[in-house]
Amino acid sequence: MIEMRRKLLTSGLVLGLLTATTTAAPAHAADVVSAPLVWGVPAARDAVAYWLADGGANLRNATPFTPPYDVRGQRASGVVEPPGKPLQISPVPPMAEGDPPRTAGKVFFVGGDDRPHWCSGVAVQNQYHNLVATAAHCVYDMVGAPATTYHWVFIPGPATDGTHPYGIYAGKQVFTHYDFTQYRDPDRDIAFVSVYSGVVPSGDGTLTTNGRLGDIVGGQGLAYNQRIDETTAPEVDVFGYPIGPHPDGSRPYTGQSLERSAGRVTATNLTSPEADRLVGVESPFTGEGSLGSAWLLGYEDERGLGYLNGVTAGVSDTDGDGRYDTGVSPYFDTSLAGVYKAAAANWTGRLT
């Protein structure tokens, strides 16, 4: 029953090639896998209703998703050469004034264990103002056959009491890289989700349209194919909602407030997981809760906007002192730009 409602992976955009490329050639459609998170508006309304039921009990009781990787390694001084020309897509501010940043939030979903969980996520710009980026593990349940999670929603700027100040946005379609769903490749652990226009509950429990995500909170830009070495490594600001413990047991974060750290992106030498295109950033975020945290290049405080250049897929204690000090992300290259472009062209619509 509940299990039957989980959608097995569909790959409608996979057109024939069975391997993805990370060369300078343009990304092929075969690099992109897409799957529905709901089958129509009624199911999307059901997803929202799940999180609003009993006064938002499922929002309050959701637990942070556990990092899928036991990351071991260290930041390195090596060079990451881009496979193509550097690319930047400009951010878009929200239509209404407000305290930045509003693009960061939490993605909520029910996993293969039939329990509610959450990760960090961020709104990114596109033509339909309806796109969210997070770690792919926060959209796909990779235990057994790859399948999407269900009741997936994005809530930007969640408050400490589980409210939803900028609306609730039900996920419609997920886009990720073929190598992640086929091979569980951590180098491709990022997903873009197109969401319906937001809704807010009225006093009698009915849902009222809030507006498109990008109109309400804005959308971060994107930066791909950035060269990384000791002298030109970009510095990014990391935004997310960490909550889990450090290896030494200390718990510096609550998961209730948006946290920020800053550091330079570097190459990484990893002994776990097996990956060759992950990059690292100095960050004290713990793993639980911080999956999906946005790495923003060129972030401007007054606008709350920058260029998404990474998404936390795991964290590592590189010096063995019992405290996490490094976040890791897939390297944003031409192939991942192809995933974004496919997602950016997906129209969604309204729930009401």
Rank of each mutant, 00 (worst) to 15 (best):
I2D: 13
E3I: 09
M4D: 07
G12D: 09
V14C: 10
A20L: 11
T23R: 10
P26R: 09
H28E: 15
H28P: 11
D31I: 02
V32G: 04
V32T: 07
V33I: 01
V33T: 00
D46E: 11
A47K: 01
W51F: 06
L52F: 04
D54N: 15
L59V: 03
A62Q: 03
P64C: 12
T66D: 13
T66Q: 14
V71G: 13
G73I: 01
Q74I: 05
R75A: 14
R75E: 08
V80A: 12
I89K: 06
M95S: 12
A96F: 07
V107L: 15
F108S: 02
G112M: 08
P116M: 13
A123D: 03
Q127V: 15
T134I: 05
A135S: 11
A136N: 04
C138G: 13
V139W: 01
Y140E: 07
V143A: 14
G144E: 03
A145P: 09
A145Q: 08
P146W: 06
P146C: 08
G157E: 04
D161M: 08
T163I: 05
G167V: 00
I168Y: 01
A170P: 03
Y178R: 14
D179N: 12
F180V: 00
D185N: 15
D189M: 11
F192I: 01
V193I: 06
S194L: 09
V200D: 07
S202C: 11
S202T: 12
G203V: 09
G203Q: 14
L207C: 12
G211F: 01
G214W: 05
G214E: 04
I216K: 15
G218V: 05
G221F: 05
L222T: 03
A223S: 14
R227G: 05
V238Q: 06
I243F: 04
I243K: 13
H246P: 00
P247F: 07
P247N: 11
P247R: 15
G249C: 13
R251M: 15
G255D: 05
S257A: 11
L258K: 04
R260H: 14
G263E: 01
L270E: 03
T271N: 08
R277G: 05
L278Q: 10
P284S: 10
T286Q: 10
G292L: 03
A294M: 08
W295L: 15
W295K: 08
Y299R: 13
L305H: 01
G306A: 02
L308Y: 07
N309G: 09
N309S: 15
G310D: 00
T312K: 09
A313Q: 09
A313C: 14
A313D: 06
G314W: 05
S316W: 04
T318R: 02
T318M: 10
D325M: 06
D325C: 07
T326N: 03
A343R: 01
W347A: 15
T348W: 06
L351F: 10
